[in-house]
């Protein structure tokens, strides 16, 4: 710190001029009586609480606004119908329901997209193609949606009961007997994630918003109209729209590893694990760990681990981090209720 009176910097100026020493000074205070904390006042393992608000959009079938600190995300889920005749290489699912492949993935029934260019932070301005971050986020969310098997294809199938529509006389369907239940169309879920405000940790909050929005999603009852060769839906007033069935509750938890630079002799080799990093911390940390866990059945199940950028986190730390993720899971579940 500057000691002379002619050059005294406020902490905000110090943070802007030299962010790395600023964060280091906060985590490693020179005076041992002051507790070590991050620049945002949190403890290293302390995450920002989630707040969730459901069904605030009227045009989407399901929506959620999730806030975690200063990161605010809106997610809207919209269902549209896709005829099986429009799907190239379509193969009807077998009657015994043994998966011939992953329908959700094969027919591209989930379409998550992240929009960052809303001016949610100074470096995300519209008028340019999606940034690398927006593209990687979309792709990571897409693969997590599929790999977590959170949704089932059964919910998105629109069936046509051939036997039920037999009129007078002998139609061709007579020969098939009672097992003429065929899939005529699918629901395609467009999952759009919009960042209103961005302050670090985009993946966790975007995923939380997707989960909350999908839990809120109710698709109208759809059926195949033979005469018009169309998929028609029943009004919600006539038949209650049904919610999607979901498998478990995967929650993502991200931490960044902050290391003291080797140049500074005082604390070289020291590192801190900062759970739920904000924008300043993200810009200073190279190594990040993301773990997606599901605690629904009592024990922590790890769905995804991704780690990049450094060598600090080893197997032991990873195990420890799973416990942090488990507490984060509990936080999110209580925020959902």
């Amino acid at each position: 710190m500057a000691t002379s009176n002619s050059l005294t910097l406020s902490s905000a100026t110090f943070a802007k001029l030299s962010p790395h020493p600023f964060l280091l000074a906060n985590l490693q205070p020179s005076d041992p009586s002051t507790p070590s904390s991050r620049t945002n006042g949190r403890q290293p393992r302390q995450a920002r609480p989630y707040s969730v608000n459901n069904s605030s959009l009227s045009h989407a079938h399901g929506s959620a606004v999730v806030r975690s600190g200063d990161t605010t995300v809106i997610c809207g889920v919209r269902g549209e119908t896709l005829l099986t005749s429009q799907i190239p290489n379509y193969r009807a699912p077998q009657a015994d329901n043994i998966a011939i492949g992953d329908e959700l993935r094969d027919y591209d029934l989930l379409v998550p997209n992240v929009e960052l260019a809303t001016g949610c932070a100074p470096n995300f301005l519209p008028g340019v193609p999606p940034t690398t971050l927006a593209q990687t986020l979309s792709t990571r969310l897409f693969s997590l949606l599929h790999s977590s098997k959170f949704l089932t294809a059964e919910d998105l199938r629109i069936y046509h009961d051939g036997a039920g529509t037999q009129g007078e006389g002998d139609t061709e369907e007579e020969g098939f007997g009672e097992t003429t239940r065929e899939v005529k169309a699918y629901w395609v879920l467009y999952i759009d994630v919009l960042f209103v405000s961005f302050d670090g940790n985009p993946f966790d909050v975007a995923w939380a918003a997707i989960i909350a929005a999908l839990r809120d999603t109710k698709l109208p009852h759809a059926y195949w109209d033979v005469d018009r060769e169309l998929v028609l839906c029943k009004r919600p007033t006539e038949k209650e729209p049904r919610p999607l069935s979901m498998r478990g509750l995967p929650v993502a938890c991200t931490a960044a590893v902050f290391t003291a630079r080797e140049r500074q002799k005082k604390g070289s080799g020291q590192y801190w694990i900062l759970v739920d990093p904000d924008r300043l911390e993200e810009s200073l940390c190279n190594e990040t760990v993301t773990m997606v866990v599901d605690n629904t059945e009592g024990e922590t199940k790890v769905l995804t681990i991704s780690k990049s950028g450094g060598t600090v986190v080893g197997p032991a730390l990873m195990r420890e981090f799973a416990n942090v993720a488990a507490t984060r899971w509990n936080e999110f579940r209580s925020a959902l209720q």
């Binding site: 119908t81 896709l82 799907i87 027919y107 395609v188």
Partner: peptide
């Protein structure tokens, strides 16, 4: 998303 055309309900 899918190649085929999707329609709103």
């Amino acid at each position: 998303g899918p190649v085929g055309q999707t329609n709103p309900p």
